[in-house]
Write a protein that binds this DNA or RNA. Structure first.
Length: 490
RNA sequence: GCCCCCAUCGUCCAACGGUUAGGACACCACUCUUUCAAGGUGGAGAUAGGAGUUCGAUUCUCCUUGGGGGCACCA
């Protein structure tokens, strides 16, 4: 039998990190088992749901590369079937009419709370004589349908928790059909999962206490139980449930911040799961191959942005220059647009020099952990001009006239250079340092700042080579202008 | 109040009932040197507490503590 799993978010918010990981576990399991991954939007809470949020969830899944095999199907489309199933529960005697009003129930719950006893429904309408209940219904008295919980323990063998059970009496009779005739969540879920022939229900830990209720419905309706697996939640850095104050919740925010989908996926997969050995950096095929739902941990994990950043850096370093180029160009384009000019104004040749762009990306991609940081390393190789990072200026151009003197010498020697290649450039720079009787770093660091506008870059000789003769000369020239101005102020 | 779930370094993960309790992120040194947000080497850092089972518990059982989830005519 082919495995069929589903991810069933309600569109009352964007796709958040916790939901994304639940989706990921479902998706990985489906891919590993060569099964089907279905998406169901649980939109029966009309007031809180919106098409925009549904769209945002779809976009989040799409960004993370979790391809949906079936759906999205909408829970609201199944209301008639849900109602049929609820009525069938009544026919089969598994549910009864409950005439208690919401006000009564609320009052009783408050009283119970005050006295300190259980909050649950006491099952009183379940003890009504059948003919009385029927007569009251026929007289037009409003009623809800409530499932009668059997007097026995309810348990199942959970994929991640193992044998799990709820003792007799710990689950209350619950409503499946409201007095206005609309079905309630626990019924809808079962009906939909049966309809979609779901074989494995993999969902968040927070549904554990819904499971016995749903099992009762499955049994009462004569449906075969799926296998349940409850995966742990993700916590914030303080060990509390993830919320806005822990930073970005929406996975799409991570796209905006420059994380790669593969890095995010890798990171999320490692939250609560490991392959059992020391591997941590995975590409997609490896992840799918290695994933075992049985190895998912029972305890909840804390979301660690630092590790995500590191992992993302690993993915950037491993990505092809061609793939990264698209992201770099998009980013630069967006910046140009936001500043109100064309990309060609700030980076005149970046579109035409595609070979050089690829070479630059390959040169710099080992360092940055996010796309903006990658862009910051790529940009100077094509930029019309660079801004100088203050911290680097303070450190490497502390003495402006000294730095200017060194850069002038560099410019002269570089201009006299015949072959423009890394080795020749290195010998010129080192030769200059030796002649000036200073350490090579005294030349290299000010030069790096002049060329890159920042204190970080790959090895300087490669940078000089790839930046090319004219641009290097222009950069040094601009730097000299800056330094002369700085020196005159000092 | 009741029910359920969980518990190894700060964090994420390892460890057939027998290991000097391992790896990764972060941190701290050192190193390469030419910068670090890259590489290399090293360091510090954990089995929540208490009983029990066992020749031997991180591992099995129970209790305590702590944390999480749930107890709707929400999903």
């Amino acid at each position: 039998m082919t495995v069929r799993v589903r991810f069933a978010p309600s569109p009352t918010g964007f796709l958040h990190v916790g939901g994304a990981r639940t989706a990921l576990f479902n998706w990985l399991y489906a891919r590993h088992e060569e099964g089907v991954f279905l998406l169901r939007i649980e939109d029966t809470d009309r007031a809180r749901s919106s098409p925009e949020l549904t769209q945002a969830i779809l976009e989040g899944l799409d960004w993370l590369g979790m391809s949906v095999d079936e759906g999205p199907v909408f829970q609201a489309d199944g209301v008639e079937r849900h109602r049929r199933h609820a009525l069938e529960l009544l026919d089969r005697g598994a549910a009864y009419r409950c005439f208690c009003s919401t006000e009564e129930l609320k009052a009783r719950r408050e009283e119970a709370q005050r006295v300190g006893s259980g909050f649950g429904y006491d099952g009183r309408c379940g003890r009504l004589a059948a003919e009385d209940a029927l007569r009251r219904a026929e007289d037009g008295e409003p009623f809800a349908l409530r499932v009668r919980i059997p007097q026995e323990d309810i348990g199942w063998d959970d994929l991640v928790h193992g044998p799990t059970s709820f003792p007799v009496g710990s689950v209350d009779d619950f409503v499946v059909l409201r007095s206005d005739g609309t079905p309630v969540y626990n019924l809808a879920v079962v009906s939909d999962d049966v309809e979609a022939r779901i074989t494995h229900v993999i969902r968040g830990d927070d549904h554990i206490s819904n499971t016995p209720k749903q099992i009762v419905i499955y049994r009462a309706l004569g449906f075969e139980l799926p296998t349940f697996g409850h995966v742990p939640l993700i916590l914030g850095s303080d060990g509390k449930r993830l919320s806005k104050r822990h930073g970005a919740m929406s996975v799409l925010a991570y796209r905006e911040e420059g994380y790669l989908p593969s890095g995010m996926r890798n990171f999320l997969a490692l939250l609560g799961w490991s392959p059992g050995d020391d591997r941590e950096v995975f590409d997609d095929p490896d992840l799918i191959e290695a994933f075992r739902i049985e190895r998912v941990l029972k305890k909840s994990a804390v979301f660690d942005l630092e590790k995500l950043a590191w992992l993302n850096g690993q993915h950037i370093a491993a990505a092809s220059a061609a793939d990264l180029r698209v992201l770099v160009l998009d980013s630069l384009q967006a910046t140009a647009a936001s500043e109100g000019h064309a990309l060609a104004d700030s980076h005149p040749t970046i579109a035409s020099e595609s070979e050089r762009l690829l070479a630059v990306i390959d040169l710099v991609k080992t360092r940055p952990r996010t796309i903006p940081l990658l862009v910051a390393q790529v940009s100077p190789f094509f930029a019309h001009e660079v801004d100088y990072e203050q911290a680097a200026v303070d450190r490497f151009w502390k003495d402006a006239s000294d730095a200017a003197q060194i850069l002038r010498a560099v410019l002269v020697d570089l201009n006299g250079l015949g072959d423009w290649d890394e080795a020749s450039i290195e010998s010129v720079i080192r030769g200059l340092a030796a002649r000036m009787e200073i350490g090579a770093g005294r030349v290299i660091n000010p030069l790096r700042l002049a060329l890159m506008g920042q204190g970080v870059s790959p090895g300087i000789f490669e940078v000089v080579e790839l930046m090319e003769r004219d641009r290097v000369a222009a950069r040094i020239d601009s730097a000299l202008g800056f330094l002369d101005a700085k020196a005159s102020v000092e």
